[in-house]
Structure formats: structure tokens, C-alpha cells
Amino acid sequence: MVFHFVDQILELDPGRHALGIKHVTSGESFVRPNAGGRATLLSCIIGEALGQLGAWNVMAAKDFAVRPVAGVVGEVAISGEAAVGDSVLLDTTIDSVTDDAVFYHAAASVGGATVLRLENTLGPLLPMEQFNDPKEMRERFAGICHSGDSTGAPETGESTAPPFDLSFDEILSFESCKEAAAVRTLSGSEAFLKDHFPRKPVLPLSLLLESLLQLGQKLLEDGGSLYVPTGAQRVKMSRFVEPGDSLVVKVRVSERNAKNALLKFRSEVEGERVCVGQAEYRAVIGENR
């Protein structure tokens, strides 16, 4: 279980609403020290968990004939963190389901405080058979619907998964506070590809976005100033990134002042658009986030 983030589904109103839990444990691939040194789950993985809960709901409502994939996220708003030991409450509301897409919004909270929201999110629905074994998905779904007391220990316990490497293979250009370009080739041996997806391994939008946000963060650093991402808007994934693809990422600073910054990003494979959007940051000079 490398890339499944819903530990338990607490409530399910098929095709409409779901509540779930993600326990953050030490040793997870996607836990990192934050600016203050506290081990926290990558924000984009919280977003991924929300998307996965929405996906479970739609897949179950559609009898596992189709599954959603990443399409458009109108807004990601990051307002807090989930640290090791925290249980993240996932709340996903489906606004509409058609034959070809699901539209939803979602919020993740820790101890009653919202840590991340997704708004105006769209996922195209594609035939399940192309991505997963429907039988295996049904079994997994049954497992997380009946995994006992939500306050209990996470089902996977402590793991020793190697940390996910967010870095690029090469920085192609870098002009501090202006723009940067970097490339990463998906080798096919990345651990998350096993789950995302077994029959069609592709780079998850959440990880692409996390890499972009981190590249943007480096780009904004200048003379000791530090900016942290507070969200992203109109993030759109228009094609899959598969093993062997070289993903070129371009990030450009659109606005930057003492308090905030806005970045535009675009990524491509062989000149074809893969993902576009913008990201917002706030300055946290001398502050522990």
C-alpha cells in the first residue's frame, strides 16, 4: 500500500458524500520535516487523500465500472498541516456525476481545524478495466469500509517506506525570483506507480503539483526570505505522464512582494501540455510554519 491514503471510510452516501480517515504515521514515504522541523504529511498528499475518498464514492456508486482520474482542481487552499500522530478527517461532497466526469469539493481537517480544501474539482471518468482490477478494488473498498474503530491504530502501522524523491533530474534554467525550468523522467520503477495505477502506471497529479510547489518555493527564496505555498488555482491535467516520459516543468514568478507571491506553472512532455495552473505563497520570514 504505497499510494492509497484513505485508511477508513466512516460514512458513505453513495454518489453524494463521504467521510473518511487518514492516519499520519512516521516512516511514511510522504512525511517530511516542515520549516520548523516537525514531521508532517505533504500537503498535496492530503489533497490526494480527499480525491481518493471522492473516487471511492463514485466508483462504488458506479459499481466499479469506471474510475475518476485527475482533471481539474479549481482551487487547493492549504491552511494547516497534518503531523505524525494526527488523524486527518476527510470530507468529500460530490456536486454532480455525469457519464463522463465527477465534480466535487472536499475538506480535510485535523482536530476540528481545516488544513486543506479542494474546490471546483473535476475528474474525468474512464473505464476501470484500463487502470485497475475491478475485483481487487471492490475488495479494497470493502476492507476500508469495515476497518473498525476510527480512533484505533492505523491498519498499516509503522512503515519503513523510503521517502519519496521529489527532486528533478536536472534544473534546465534557474533565475532566482523570476523563472525556472526543470526536467524529470519517469523511470517506471517509482514505488507509487504500483498503485497508481496497476494496469496503467502514471504520475499522480498530487506529486507533480508537490514538485512544482517545491520548485516554486526555491525560486522565491532570496537573501534569507522564505515563502510557503498557501494554495493553487486552476490546476489542470490534460494528459498522462507515463514511464519513459520526460516531464519538463516551467515555473514563472508572476507577482512577488514582502507578504505574498504568485507563480504560474506549465509542464509539458515533448512540447505537449500536461499540466498548467498557478500557485500562491506567503512569506514566513522568521516564522515557524
Partner: peptide
């Protein structure tokens, strides 16, 4: 304007 299929899905939904 380089619209792709995902953009049409998005556009139709926003118009709706």
C-alpha cells in the same frame, strides 16, 4: 486558444 478535451469538460461544467 489550445483547448483540449479536458477544457471542454471543464467549460461545459462551468457554464452549467
Amino acid at each position: 486558444y489550445s483547448a483540449e478535451s479536458i477544457d471542454f469538460l471543464d467549460l461545459v461544467y462551468q457554464l452549467e
